[in-house]
Simulated assay, not measured.
Amino acid sequence: MKLNQVIAIEKGTKSRSLQDLTEAHHTLQKPALLAGIARTYRPKDEEGEQFPPESTRVQVKAEDVIRKTSEVLTKLFDVVATKDWANCSAKADVTVDGTVLLSQVPATYLLFLEKQLVDLHTFIKKLPVLDASETWTFDPSADYWATEPMQTIKTKKIPRNHVKAEATEKHPAQVEVYYEDVVVGTWRTTKFSGALPANRVNELLNRIEKLQEAVKFAREEANNMEVTEQKVGAKVFQYLFG
C-alpha cells in the first residue's frame, strides 16, 4: 500500500468511527435496551385465575458494544498510525528549473508549503502596479519611481471692459465686463510612486507558480512511497478493555 492510498481512506475511516462511537454511546444511555425480565404466575389455590408467563429479552449487552466499538476504533488507530509512521520517512526534493531548492522535505511540511503558497500567490497578484499611461524611471536617490517633469501653464481670469455704446449727452456709456484668461506662470510637475512595474509583478507571479508546481510534484512523490502497515490499535484496546 502507498501513503497516498492511506491518506485517501483516512477521512472516511474517521467519519465512520465517529458515527459508530456516537451510536454506541447513545445505545448505552438507554437503560430499557439493557434490561430484561422473566416472571411466572402461580395462583394461591388451584381454582385461582391463571396468567401466562411474561418475559423481556436483554437487547443490548455492554460487553458486545465495547467489543464492536473496539473493532471499529482499532481500524482507525491502525490507519492513522500507518500514515503518521510513514510521514516520518516520506520525503522528497523541491526542484525548480532543474535545481534542488529544498532537499528531502517531509511530506507534512510540503503540505504546509502548498497551502502557504496559495496565500502568497494572492498577495503577489494584488501588488500595486505603476500606471501604464505614464513613463516611469527609477530614482535611486529617492528610492521610488518618478515620471519626467511635465510643464503646464497657470492662468488667471482678468476682468476686461467692452464698450457696447459710447456715452452721449443723454445716456451713459454701455459697458460689458468680461474675463480673459491670462498666463501668469507655469507649473512643473513630477509624479512619484512606490508601486511596481508590471513586468516585476509578472516575474514574481511566474516564480511562485513554478514553486507551487514543484512543491505539488514533490508532495505527490513523497506520498507515493510504500508504507508498512502499523497494528497498534489492538494493543491499545486490549489494554483498555481486555
Rank of each mutant, 00 (worst) to 15 (best):
Met1His: 06
Lys2Phe: 12
Asn4Met: 12
Val6Cys: 05
Ile9Cys: 01
Gly12Leu: 12
Gly12Ala: 14
Ser17Trp: 09
Leu18Glu: 15
Leu21Glu: 07
Leu21Tyr: 11
Leu21Ala: 15
His25Pro: 00
His25Ser: 15
His25Cys: 09
Thr27Phe: 08
Gln29His: 04
Ala32Val: 14
Leu33Asn: 07
Leu33His: 06
Leu34Phe: 06
Ala35Arg: 09
Gly36Thr: 04
Gly36Ile: 07
Thr40Ser: 15
Pro43Gly: 06
Asp45Phe: 10
Gly48Arg: 04
Glu49Ile: 14
Phe51Val: 08
Pro53Cys: 08
Glu54Gln: 11
Val58Phe: 13
Val60Tyr: 00
Val60His: 00
Asp64Tyr: 04
Ile66Met: 06
Glu71Phe: 12
Leu73Trp: 00
Leu73Ser: 00
Asp78His: 04
Val79Phe: 04
Ala81Gln: 03
Asp84Met: 11
Ala86Ile: 03
Ser89Trp: 13
Lys91Ile: 13
Lys91Asp: 08
Val94Lys: 09
Val96Glu: 12
Thr99Gln: 12
Thr99Asn: 03
Leu102Gln: 14
Leu102Gly: 04
Leu102His: 06
Gln104Met: 08
Pro106Lys: 11
Thr108Leu: 10
Leu110Gly: 12
Phe112Gln: 04
Phe112Pro: 00
Leu113Glu: 13
Glu114Val: 03
Lys115Trp: 12
Leu117Thr: 06
Asp119Thr: 15
Leu120Cys: 02
Leu120Met: 13
His121Cys: 01
Thr122Ile: 15
Lys125Ile: 01
Leu127Phe: 07
Leu130Tyr: 02
Thr135Trp: 00
Thr137Ser: 13
Phe138Ser: 02
Phe138Lys: 00
Ser141Thr: 10
Ser141Ala: 14
Ala142Leu: 04
Tyr144Asp: 05
Tyr144Arg: 15
Pro149His: 03
Met150Ile: 13
Lys154Gly: 10
Ile158Gln: 06
Ile158Pro: 01
Pro159Trp: 03
Val163Met: 06
Ala165His: 09
Thr168Asn: 05
Pro172Thr: 14
Gln174Trp: 05
Tyr179Arg: 03
Glu180Ala: 00
Asp181Phe: 03
Val184Thr: 14
Thr186Ala: 13
Thr186Lys: 14
Arg188Thr: 15
Arg188Gln: 15
Thr189Gln: 08
Thr189Ile: 13
Thr189Val: 13
Phe192Ser: 02
Ser193Asp: 01
Gly194Ser: 13
Ala195Leu: 00
Pro197His: 01
Pro197Trp: 01
Arg200Ser: 08
Arg200Leu: 04
Val201Phe: 02
Asn202Ala: 08
Glu203Ser: 12
Glu203Cys: 00
Arg207Cys: 09
Arg207Asn: 14
Lys210Gly: 08
Lys210Arg: 07
Glu220Ile: 11
Glu220Tyr: 11
Glu221Gly: 12
Ala222Asp: 08
Ala222Cys: 10
Glu226Tyr: 07
Glu226Trp: 02
Glu226Cys: 03
Val227Gln: 10
Thr228His: 08
Glu229Gly: 09
Glu229Thr: 11
Gly233Trp: 02
Phe237Cys: 06
Phe241Val: 07
